[in-house]
């Protein structure tokens, strides 16, 4: 990347933006590339590019097509919706600024759906597996109920400063996309299968595969909460069973791509130590 002032940037800015999108009409259908071209404007991000693509619904060859489908929400990188693979890198499309992308490649922007989740359509993927993992590690505080019982336990500033970063996980899935141990699980509905049965079959398949950095980190977050700690044993059981911490290959890609800079590898190391202690306890408590 060449360091340059705003004026130099101005000169290099083309009047058009070329976009190459990997499209797919539905689950199990073959993916295909499609080129689009939209007018350049200052301060654009990939979201505004996709909005223009939707509004014109024409490829760069002038062929009428359906608008490219994609997922988005807050547009300020705090909801996690708009995650996709942009120029080969997994990230949120709202914070992918066109001017920055041009610094690397002014010719073209390449958009692909995440590869570790089943494609629903175009750039929309099904991340239900990610939320299912949060159930598996019981990522919650098991309070008695919601009546007024006064304040919670006193928490030191140090503990808050350790937990707050972990609690910023927006379930975007970047850490899973980048992880070599996290493999795609994609099932097709059987003829005549009910919603409930299909969901059950999917969840069973998810549970035989790696749970991922985000869920391990959430388990550590709740294990360190004075009340949520009461479920530590159950969480460690999940973490040490099939698809748990032992599946982690320590590639450390997760922490490198996390948009919230969550110390995921620190959480994984903590989980590793806790797993050893838990395994010993299990042997001697028998």
């Amino acid at each position: 990347m060449i360091a340059s002032g705003p004026e130099a940037d101005q000169k290099r800015r083309p009047s058009k933006i070329n976009v190459r999108v990997l499209r797919q009409d539905g689950p199990g259908l073959p993916p295909y590339w499609e080129r689009h071209q939209v007018d350049y404007e200052p301060d654009m991000n990939v979201i505004s590019v996709l909005q223009k693509i939707a509004a014109q619904a024409k490829t760069s060859e002038g062929k009428s097509v359906t608008p490219v489908a994609w997922d988005c929400g807050c547009l300020e990188e705090v909801c996690g919706s708009c995650t996709m693979v942009i120029n080969g890198r997994v990230r949120q499309s709202c914070s992918a600024l066109v001017d920055r992308l041009f610094e690397d490649n002014p010719e073209e922007i390449e958009l692909q759906p995440m590869t570790k989740f089943p494609v629903v359509r175009d750039l929309v993927i099904d991340r239900s597996r990610l939320f299912h993992s949060l159930k598996r590690v019981q990522a919650w505080v098991p309070v008695d109920g919601y009546y007024d019982m006064g304040a919670g336990p006193r928490i030191s500033r140090e503990a808050q400063e350790q937990n707050y970063p972990l609690s910023q996980c927006m379930s975007c899935g970047c850490c899973l996309e980048a992880c070599p141990q996290f493999n795609k699980v994609e099932l097709q509905r059987n003829p005549g299968e009910s919603d409930e049965d299909f969901t059950k079959r999917k969840e069973a398949a998810y549970e035989s595969e790696f749970i991922g950095a985000h869920a391990i980190s959430q388990a550590m977050l709740f294990n360190s909460h004075p009340v949520a700690k009461s479920l530590e044993k159950e969480r460690m059981e999940t973490i040490t069973s099939t698809g748990g911490i032992q599946a982690c290959g320590n590639a450390q890609n997760c922490v490198a791509v996390c948009p919230k800079e969550i110390p995921l590898t620190t959480s994984i190391a903590r989980a590793g130590r806790a797993a050893t202690v838990y395994a010993f306890k299990k042997i001697f408590d028998r």
């Binding site: 919650w140 505080v141 309070v143 919601y146 007024d148 019982m149 006064g150 304040a151 919670g152 006193r154 928490i155 030191s156 500033r157 808050q160 937990n163 707050y164 609690s167 709740f222 909460h225 009340v227 949520a228």
Partner: peptide
Amino acid sequence: PKVIDLMDRLGVTFNRTPEGFI
């Protein structure tokens, strides 16, 4: 005040004073 107490019990990572209060 009761709403904030409840959210505190649910584990919200409110910023803390040096003594550990919200």
